[in-house]
Simulated scan of single mutants.
Amino acid sequence: MRMFAIAALVLGLTGLVHADDKKTDPTGTWKWTVERNGQKTERSVKLELKDGKLTGTSPTPDGKETKLEDGTFKDGDVTFTIHRENNGQKMTIKYKGKIEGDSFKGTAEVDAGGETRKVEFDAKREKAK
């Protein structure tokens, strides 16, 4: 009986550790709304953590996908960079944030045409279908 209790405790703790790993897993589609000049725009990014490497894509307004670069993920902390071109103007967006469960909050530093601005974002993980 004692052996059964110990085995149940070990299995229970293993399940908790696995559930906690899943809770901070960045894999999924993250969506948020950005407001600029009174206009609201939906943004999203698809993240995937595989073999310790963070990769992903972000859709462009014309329906194409831009690959993420320099992605890192450790202990819920996420960073990645996106390079885009809009009307001939190149821009770099550096994301830095923290994932807790289905919430991803942080800042995006946008460098466009020599001007840099920071915007905060509060993304939610889209539920799997």
Rank of each mutant, 00 (worst) to 15 (best):
M91C: 07
E85A: 13
T29W: 03
G15C: 11
D102M: 00
F73V: 08
V45D: 02
A123P: 06
S103W: 00
M1A: 15
E109G: 06
G28R: 02
K98E: 11
T41R: 09
H18S: 11
M1E: 08
T116L: 02
A112V: 09
M91N: 05
D75E: 12
P26Y: 06
Q89R: 14
A19L: 06
G63A: 04
T107D: 13
D111T: 12
W32E: 07
E126M: 14
E100G: 10
N87L: 14
D20G: 09
R43V: 06
T24L: 10
T41Y: 12
S58Q: 13
G12Y: 05
D122I: 00
T79V: 04
I82P: 13
G15V: 07
F80W: 10
T66R: 15
R2T: 05
V17D: 12
K46C: 02
T33I: 12
K124W: 00
P61M: 06
K96T: 11
S103R: 03
F121K: 02
F4R: 13
E65S: 10
E35A: 04
V17C: 13
T116V: 13
H18M: 15
A5P: 05
F4D: 14
T41H: 10
K50Y: 06
G52D: 04
D62K: 05
W32Y: 07
F80G: 05
T14S: 12
F121V: 01
T57L: 01
T66C: 08
A123D: 02
T116Y: 10
W32K: 04
A8T: 08
G28E: 03
E126Y: 01
D122P: 00
R125A: 02
T116M: 03
K46Y: 06
H18L: 11
Q39N: 15
D51K: 06
T72N: 07
K50T: 13
T107S: 01
F4W: 11
T29M: 08
Q89G: 06
I93E: 12
K40N: 09
D62V: 04
K23L: 15
F73D: 05
